[in-house]
Simulated assay, not measured.
Amino acid sequence: MSRKVILTCALTGAGDTVGKSEHVPVTPEQIADNAIAAARAGASVVHIHVRDPETGQGSRDVALYREVVRLVGESDVDPVINLTAGMGGDLVLDPHNPTQMLPGTDLVSGLDRLPHVEELRPEICTLDCGSLNFGEGSLVYVSTPDMLREGAARIKELGVKPELEIFDTGQLWFANLMVEEGLIAPPPLYQLCMGIPYGAPVDTGLLTAMVNMVPEGTEWTSFAIGRDQLKWVAQSVLLGGHVRVGLEDNLYLRKGVKATNAQLVERAAEIIDSLGESVATPDEAREILKIDTKATV
């Protein structure tokens, strides 16, 4: 009997990708349309960031999240709703005077990253499990142990399942500690994020080592960015995990061919099927993750 694999589509992210592909959704209507198309193509879960419709930059505006969730909720599909709660951790420092914050900084407390989760009560929200030098330059993503414990406790109170975003082995160590401390309701859901500079590199041996650190009873997903995205679908499935694709992490279906979210979902579903497994329906994903609540519309 085939295993049910949860297929997540990360629709848009907050990166500087809007000018790189005409398929990256920006407005709430575009993001919702992409979510609906991805679900029709087979996505079990849609992972949602929102963007400022005027600038295309990532946003924490609750009204934008509210509109996306409403539009998806009124459609003919019912994917599991996963809202990012990672926005608000960006710290850009002057390298010559690190006491000075530079433009691009968007740094708030762990609880202040949750207003849209408080209001909309999505089925899943993300929780980034540590601080990270994020790419070149002077951007640091800040998520301290105190912030994480406070955020995890509040997310648990809300009845929302946290997807623990893990960018390196130290973050995996801390995620395991939060599970041990009872801050994460069972079953835990881990997302092993590969290839984001400068976290865990795209390496099959490292993925295997990280999977070996995952606590028993945990549901886990892994993804890799860019040209490694689709091959990582196979890597994750072969090691017993779930998968994620989408324009947040990769803009191409193949070299020189720009993708839509729905096309990436279709290709991922083909890979899963070719390995003898099957894509979980949204309700099957809810059963696997022990989710019994739905986002407020």
Rank of each mutant, 00 (worst) to 15 (best):
T84N: 08
W220L: 11
G195Y: 08
I271R: 04
W220D: 07
A200N: 06
K258A: 12
K156T: 11
E118D: 12
S2R: 08
T126W: 00
A224C: 12
L239M: 12
Q229I: 02
K161I: 06
D106W: 10
L139P: 04
P145T: 04
I124A: 00
D146I: 07
K4V: 01
V80H: 00
L114F: 02
I291C: 00
H23R: 00
C129V: 15
T204V: 14
G205L: 05
Q263F: 09
E157C: 08
S143Q: 14
R286A: 08
T296E: 13
E136N: 13
A39Q: 00
Q229K: 01
E136I: 11
E74G: 15
G88K: 04
L183G: 08
N82V: 03
P115F: 13
Y252P: 03
L91I: 12
V243H: 09
A10S: 15
M1T: 10
L206K: 07
K294G: 02
P103S: 10
N97F: 14
M87K: 12
S21L: 06
T296G: 09
R227L: 03
D146Q: 13
R51F: 09
L289E: 14
V92E: 05
C193D: 08
N250T: 01
V108T: 12
V237C: 03
A268D: 00
C193R: 00
G226T: 12
T221P: 00
Q229C: 05
S75I: 07
V245F: 04
W232D: 10
S274I: 00
P98H: 04
T296Y: 14
Y141R: 01
S75Q: 08
G241T: 04
G241K: 06
G135D: 13
D16H: 11
L64Q: 10
D249N: 15
V18C: 02
T260C: 06
